[in-house]
């Protein structure tokens, strides 16, 4: 799942995969602004067929947190 999340981030933010890790976040990536955050959330929801609560969308600010939130929805533990 982490790889998929990274790939989605890489495409939406136009950042190479190898520059992304668990701790890539809105703080470390300049491109991850509020507009792109909206795109990331929409792309993740579409890919995983889930719908996040507003609170979740506000919290999913790093690869790790995204993975955690999605795994809660899919009821499987993070890798």
């Amino acid at each position: 799942m982490k790889e998929i999340i990274k790939e989605i981030l890489s495409v939406v933010l136009d950042v190479p995969m190898h520059e992304l890790d668990d701790f890539s976040s809105t703080q470390t990536l300049e491109q991850w602004d509020s507009l792109n955050h909206m795109k990331i959330i929409a792309a993740l929801e579409e890919h995983f067929s889930v719908s996040f609560t507003e609170q979740e969308t506000l919290e999913m600010q790093s690869v790790k947190l995204i993975e955690y939130t999605i795994s809660c929805h899919l009821s499987c533990p993070p890798e």
Binding site: E7, I8, V11, V12, D14, K39, A42, A43, E46, H47
Partner: peptide
């Protein structure tokens, strides 16, 4: 098509 796929193909 998924949104991510669209963004990727659009760049190509």
């Amino acid at each position: 098509m998924s949104y991510v796929e669209i963004i990727k193909k659009n760049r190509e």
